[in-house]
């Protein structure tokens, strides 16, 4: 995936469409947007940077997982099999991007009340396990783009095959000097950012 920081306006629509698509419970933000400020007044730059699982080619989370719950799909997407996860949270300590969330107990957005939406959606989430972005794998299987890509209101996100040098994402990375976060760690993330 390529995220164009020149286009991104930091609206957090991606964070919430992720929530809607995946029905993630309170406090579980598979996707978030941070603000990053540089410079001194009046020469200041503030950039909004969406963050989510980087789907590293060399995922440290998978390496440390004691049960094999964290695994990599053949297409490179890093996923968690909730049935295998014991909730040791080792992966959370291993992820350099702080992109994993532990659901300690079942919780609803309105204390003491479960909305019909939550009734329908929270079956997908069990307590006591770790979860994270899976690039909307169920959507991909239906031939759709991840929800954050499909909904981005400044069209800052492009989804595609990094291995294909002719793909849109590969071209964008080439033409606009796309970069990864914390490349020094050797994780080789699948999310590239285009400079603002």
């Amino acid at each position: 995936m390529v995220i164009d920081l020149k286009k991104c306006i930091g609206c957090t629509g991606c964070a919430l469409v992720c929530k809607a698509e995946n029905a993630t419970p309170p406090g579980i933000l598979w996707l978030r947007v941070v603000k990053h400020e540089t410079g001194k007044y009046p020469q200041v730059r503030r950039v909004s940077v969406p963050l989510q699982c980087m789907h590293c080619a060399e995922p440290p989370c998978m390496e440390v997982c004691p049960t094999g719950a964290t695994f990599q799909h053949p297409n490179g997407i890093v996923d968690i099999d909730a049935e295998l996860c014991v909730g040791c949270r080792y992966c959370m300590m291993a992820c350099p991007y702080d992109q994993r969330f532990f659901l300690s107990a079942e919780r609803t957005y309105f204390p003491g009340h479960t909305t019909p939406f939550e009734q329908a959606g929270y079956q997908r989430h069990q307590a006591g396990v770790v979860s994270k972005c899976n690039f909307c794998t169920p959507r991909l299987q239906r031939g759709l783009e991840p929800a954050c890509v499909a909904n981005c209101m400044s069209r800052a996100r492009t989804f595609g095959d990094l291995d294909d040098s002719n793909s849109e994402v590969s071209k964008l990375i080439r033409d606009r000097a796309g970069y990864q976060l914390h490349p020094e760690l050797g994780t080789n993330p699948s999310i590239y950012y285009l400079p603002p």
Binding site: C11, G13, A15, L16, A20, A150, N151, M153, R155
Partner: peptide, 8 residues
């Protein structure tokens, strides 16, 4: 086809 966070 797009929505802001409020819409979602």
């Amino acid at each position: 086809g797009r929505l802001c966070p409020r819409g979602v």
